[in-house]
Amino acid sequence: MRHWVILDETRGVVVDGERIGVEAQGMGMIDEIYRGYVGNYMKYFKMDSLCKVGFVASELLLAKESGSRDVEQRKCYGTAERAIVLFNESGSLYTDTRYQATISDEENYFPSPALFVYTLANIVTGEIAIRNKYYGETNFLVLPEKNSQAMAVQVSALFADKETQSAIVGWVECDAEEHFEVRMALVGRDDNIENDIKTLIEWKN
């Protein structure tokens, strides 16, 4: 495991085992990290909560890898060498519920395209790929529950694609506005995946 990030509303922000100080709570915490560590990316404000937490975590991870906020200076920019495979339990259910609200009242029936597009959990992988111009494999897998072994099987299997040299992987969950948990890592083809995923998922401060 090259680098890893944990973001959740109770534990706060941890990058490679080191805590990053944030003042705000809940989604405010994600906005605070965006302003402090990312910035200048208008697409961020259009994202749903699942994409925001996943995107911000990926930014922390990749800034750590390259020591640069400048996306074009980062490793793997514009290549197909890096895959993005993320997991969770609720899919996009929180945004699904927000979209459903736009069609549940017969008197006020205005289905929102901007919400509908986020009713697919894999959009978060697309947002990260767009930001970093990653042309590699992107996939989103939903599991009945968080299970590091099941995740490790899928992450190890990724490298069956010979073009894939490294991957952004992990658990990205946001099943309510103030309820999110991200455990994301950057792993390479030669890493001990099973061990890395176990460490990532079981890490407690």
Partner: peptide, 24 residues
């Protein structure tokens, strides 16, 4: 939850394994 719906189908087949759901 997609995994829970899929698990229900797998249990109905009498299988105890947990499914993986690809939602791409």
């Amino acid at each position: 939850n997609l995994g829970e719906g899929a698990r229900r189908v797998v249990r109905e087949l009498g299988n105890g394994n947990d499914p993986v759901v690809v939602s791409n």
